[in-house]
Each structure stands twice: as C-alpha cells, then as structure tokens.
Design a protein around this nucleic acid. Structure first.
Lengths: 187, 187
DNA sequence: TGTACATCAGTGAACGCGCGTTCACTGATGTAC
DNA sequence: TGTACATCAGTGAACGCGCGTTCACTGATGTAC
C-alpha cells in the first residue's frame, strides 16, 4: 500500500472527531457530509473511502464521543464533582464539546438499530461507571441519575430565559445529589 | 370573505395537529411541509396562506402539543399516576402522541429564540402544574422531576435492548417518586 | 542508491432527489342587488 | 328567491439549493528491482 496505515487512520480519526463535534452542535440530520469533511480539511468526495455511509459515520461519531467521556467521573474526582461539572453553564453553552447523549439521544432513538446498538453498548459502560462511584452501588440509581442529568441539561439548553435556565441546572444538581445519596450541598 | 372564518381555522388546526404528530415522530428537520399538508388532506402550495414559514408552524405545533398536555396531571388523577403513565412502555413506543418536550427538546434548543420563547412559556405553565401537585410545593423539585421524566423517556427510547429500556423506565419512576416525596412504590 | 511502477487517499464534477418557498390559477362559497 | 360578482383557500408547476452518493481522475508515496 501507498500511504501508511497510520496516515489513513489519522485522517479517519480527524473526520470522526469533526463529525462528533458538528453533530452535537447542530444535530446529525442538519449536518452534511461535505461540512464534516471540510472541517477535517478534506473534500467531500473522499468520504466513501473511509465510511460506507453517513449513517456509519454517525455510529462511529457516537461511539467516539461516548468513549471520550467514559472516564470523566474519575477525571472529575468523583460523582459529586462530575454532577456539578455536568450541570455547569459552561457545559450547557458548549454542546459541541459536551455530552453526546444530551445532544443527540432523541435523534439516536430515530436511527437504525445498528446505531442504537452502538449507543446502548457505550451507555451501559457509562452507567457502570456511575454505579461504581455510588456510595451504595445500584444500577437503577445510576440510570436515574444519568436520566436526570441529561433531561436537566436539555431543558436548560432549550429555555430562552437565562435565569430559568440557571435555576433548572441548580435544581438538577440538587436532585442528582439526592438520588445518589450524597450530602445535600457543598462542593 | 368567502370561506367562513371557521372553515379556515379548522384547516389551520388540522395542519398544526398533523405537524405536532409528525414532528414528534420524526423530528422537525426531518419532516417536510408537503408531508404535513398531505397528512392534513391538502397540497403543499396552500401552506403559506396559513403560516409565514415552516419555523412559524414549528412554534405553533410546539405550543399546541404543550397546551394539549397542560392538564394531564389532573387528568391522570395526581402526580404519582401521571409519573406512572408518563414512564409506561406505551408512551415510550408512541412518541407521536406523547410528550413533545421528550421528543423535541434538543431540537428546540437549536431553533430561533422566538420558538424557544414559545416553548419556555408553555414549559413554565407545565412546571407550575407539577408544583401544584407536589405534597410540598417547590419550583426546583418540579423542575427536577420533569427533567428526570424527560431524560428517562429519551434514554428508554434510544436504547436498543428492550430489557434495559424497561429497567430505565422503572428506575425513572422510582426516582421521580422519590424526588416528589411520594411513598416508594404502589400505583 | 536510483529509477519505474503500482497503489489508493483524496479531488471535484455530476447524479437524482427532496427541500422551503413562490406564483399564476381555479373554483367553491359568501355578499350585493 | 335568484343571479352576478368578488373573495381567497387551496392547487400544482416551478424556482434555486443543498443533500448523500458515485465516479473518472490525479498525484504522493510505498515497493520492486
């Protein structure tokens, strides 16, 4: 072969990362293949020497972004710190760098089973990670905490009144802490 | 005027209702004006004698669907019953007839401020309704409960494993009950 | 080491299609007499 | 009451555009000798 394996893998990764960013910012359906390729410094025609379809890229982008945040609880320094960081205005205001679940769950739900299966696999891993950081591990509690975080961030993003948006973030943090049986406030 | 006011209003309402259904099922961006008009038994050209743009229809459809569920807590017979019904598989499996917030929050967050303002107004009313049904009224608790319901329903819809999906619904119900300070189980 | 060749990542024009929106029209129905 | 006219909700062709995907190509770089 001509270009090294490494070269091709690098390009592919750049495309996946550009896609993960754009998709979170504007939605998968609203972003064209040409835009993603341009973000990666390429023209659109080369797309199909890397991916079978836009759908295949969507699945890879979801997987990539889920993997990128897989260790974010440990990185934050524990569940309480993670919850706090997750519900910060900074996260709300930068969806392209944030949680791909909050940005795209509803859209993923409308995608083919193959894409949903990829999401499901990565979600399971993340839920395990939440559970492992719980004072008293319980899968149902981990699921409920994540659902609360995702729902809260989305409501805070949709609302047009900044004051209400901030209140929602605070309310979500208190609720997530309460569900995880952490002490009420502090940081 | 020629056709009665009533006739025009009826048509308009049929279009808004068709839109609210299609948008919830497939997303606003993925549904064309022609499809909505066909659902309402019309051709696409007449659309602009009712609405200024697709965006205007989106805002109306959101408002309409939010209004339609405004009294659903009282209709369900209280907050516990509402939470239970909201997190049923039947609701998960029929987004076109269900909560428009769960179906479209993330997409609404990417729409113009005017549309987000309409959503915000209706959301405030719904949060008030949750709060009024709380044993101890508290805006933050109402916000957290709704965020938990929305996040839970969305995760349950996206996941490809039915068993996990059902677990998530149950976990969400337990959490929402706990946040609202209702007794643990029952129905 | 230097040259010829083969590979294939990446280019850019082209495809068919569906989109939101516009527009000249038509024909059902309300109003005037 | 019956007829002529005006209105405008609804029709369907057409617009420019961006989409996902295909394809003939090119040219940088790895391999063979």
């Amino acid at each position: 072969m001509r270009y090294s394996e490494e070269h091709k893998e690098n390009t592919r990764r750049r495309v996946v990362e550009a896609a993960a960013k754009r998709f979170r910012k504007r939605g998968i359906g609203a972003v064209g293949v040409a835009t993603v390729m341009a973000d990666a410094g390429l023209t659109h025609g080369g797309f199909y020497s890397h991916f079978a379809s836009k759908e295949a890229l969507a699945a890879e982008a979801v997987a990539h972004a889920m993997d990128a945040s897989a260790d974010s609880i440990a990185a934050a320094g524990g569940l309480a710190a993670f919850i706090h960081a997750y519900l910060q205005p900074a996260h709300r205001d930068a969806p392209e760098k944030g949680c791909i679940t909050a940005a795209l769950v509803a859209e993923i739900a409308r995608h083919p089973k193959s894409t949903r299966a990829v999401f499901t696999k990565k979600l399971r891993a993340f839920l395990k990670s939440i559970e492992a950081h719980l004072p008293t591990p319980d899968p149902a509690v981990a699921q409920a905490i994540f659902a609360t975080l995702v729902g809260t961030l989305q409501l805070a993003r949709a609302v047009s009144d900044p004051a209400l948006s901030n209140q929602i973030l605070s309310a979500g943090e208190a609720a997530a802490r309460r569900l995880s049986s952490l002490e009420p406030a502090g940081v």
